[in-house]
Measured scan of single mutants.
Amino acid sequence: MGFKLLSKLLVYLTASIMAIASPLAFSVDSSGEYPTVSEIPVGEVRLYQIADGVWSHIATQSFDGAVYPSNGLIVRDGDELLLIDTAWGAKNTAALLAEIEKQIGLPVTRAVSTHFHDDRVGGVDVLRAAGVATYASPSTRRLAEVEGNEIPTHSLEGLSSSGDAVRFGPVELFYPGAAHSTDNLIVYVPSASVLYGGCAIYELSRTSAGNVADADLAEWPTSIERIQQHYPEAQFVIPGHGLPGGLDLLKHTTNVVKAHTNRSVVE
């Protein structure tokens, strides 16, 4: 069995187990497998329904001669939608809004960016022009300005110390501490036991640490421990890039980060 097929099978099995364990909360999309990078042309966006009122959005972007996937989250909030992270750029984010209108038909009224990198804030200006209120932590807003990236308009308070959590509509926002970046936030959907790890969490097929220019490698494993301790009931975990899975993604990420750190020390 090929690795790609095995990865998709694991996603399907995880979703099936969740649907059985929580039949009222989960209505997993039966329309197909989780979209992969090879299936999404740059400039297009796919939506994948995880649970009743919960979707991931998947886009792709060219970077350094390669094409990478990027995940975000959409959560229903009454007759409105909360968006977590842009679709990595203005063109993708405009396509995301169009796809949401086509498939869901509810307005996106608020959006949260989970850290300051372009795959999370690139497209904020498109959201703002569409009347979406954009939010991020003060740290993310400051770092985005320093980096020359787009800056969300509103500040999220109460997320300055490791372990801080605040309720934001249908989700809980959690600051686990520094990891992929010093400002990275985690998003949890309690009604569906869905954990969105953003770039602080890796997919299972990833074996290298990737972009760690703004990471705190020493603190990252401790931050992941905080996530595990705060959300032990999480059933569906979405990484910032690639295929979702279960809580095993947290341990896998820790292993990859520690291996990278150990290699760096040896070198």
Rank of each mutant, 00 (worst) to 15 (best):
M1H: 03
M1E: 04
F3Y: 07
L6F: 08
L6C: 07
L10D: 11
Y12I: 04
Y12P: 02
T14I: 09
A15Q: 12
S16G: 13
I17F: 04
I17W: 04
I20C: 07
I20N: 11
A21M: 08
A25I: 10
F26G: 06
F26N: 15
S27G: 08
S27Y: 06
D29G: 08
D29K: 08
D29C: 13
S31Q: 08
S31Y: 15
S38D: 08
S38W: 12
E39M: 06
P41R: 07
V42P: 08
V42C: 07
G43P: 05
E44C: 11
E44R: 07
V45C: 03
L47K: 02
Y48M: 05
A51Y: 15
D52N: 08
G53D: 05
G53F: 11
S56P: 05
A59K: 05
T60N: 06
Q61T: 09
D64T: 09
A66K: 07
V67C: 09
V67N: 07
P69Y: 08
P69E: 05
P69M: 11
S70M: 10
G72N: 01
L73P: 03
I74H: 00
V75H: 03
R76C: 03
R76L: 05
D77S: 06
D77V: 08
D77L: 09
D79R: 13
D79W: 15
L81S: 04
L82D: 04
L83G: 01
I84L: 13
D85S: 00
A87N: 03
A87E: 01
W88D: 00
W88V: 00
T93S: 14
T93C: 03
A95F: 12
A95R: 09
E99Y: 13
I100W: 02
Q103W: 11
Q103V: 12
I104W: 08
G105Q: 12
V108E: 02
R110S: 10
R110M: 04
A111C: 13
A111V: 07
V112T: 04
T114V: 00
T114P: 00
H117A: 00
D118P: 08
D118W: 10
D118S: 12
V121G: 00
V121L: 04
G122Q: 06
V124W: 03
L127H: 02
L127N: 00
L127Q: 03
L127G: 02
A129W: 11
A129K: 14
G131Y: 12
G131E: 12
G131M: 12
Y135G: 01
A136T: 04
S137E: 03
R141K: 08
R142V: 09
L143S: 13
A144L: 09
A144G: 10
E145S: 11
E145F: 14
E145R: 11
V146N: 06
E147F: 15
P152C: 03
P152Q: 03
T153Y: 08
T153V: 11
L156V: 08
L156Q: 12
E157C: 07
E157Y: 15
E157K: 09
L159Q: 01
S160R: 13
S162Y: 13
G163W: 13
D164A: 14
V166E: 10
G169L: 03
V171G: 02
L173Q: 01
L173H: 03
P176N: 01
A179D: 03
D183M: 00
D183E: 06
N184E: 01
L185F: 04
I186F: 07
V187L: 14
V189E: 09
V189D: 04
V189N: 03
P190I: 04
P190N: 04
S191M: 07
A192F: 11
A192Y: 06
S193C: 03
Y196F: 13
C199R: 01
A200W: 02
A200T: 11
I201V: 11
Y202G: 10
E203R: 01
L204K: 12
L204D: 15
T207P: 11
T207M: 11
A209P: 15
G210S: 13
N211I: 07
N211M: 13
A213C: 12
A213G: 11
A215D: 13
D216S: 12
L217D: 04
A218Y: 09
W220R: 01
W220S: 00
T222Q: 14
T222I: 10
I224W: 01
I224R: 01
R226A: 08
R226L: 05
I227Y: 00
Q229I: 09
Q229M: 14
H230Y: 07
H230R: 08
Y231C: 05
Y231D: 03
Y231K: 01
P232T: 10
P232N: 11
A234V: 11
Q235F: 15
V237T: 14
V237H: 00
V237L: 09
I238L: 12
P239D: 02
P239Y: 02
H241C: 00
H241G: 00
G245W: 03
G246I: 05
G246H: 09
D248N: 05
L249S: 02
L249W: 01
K251E: 06
T254A: 13
T254H: 06
V256Q: 05
V257A: 10
V257N: 04
V257C: 10
K258Q: 07
A259K: 05
T261F: 14
R263S: 07
S264V: 14
S264Q: 15
V265L: 11
V265N: 12
E267W: 10
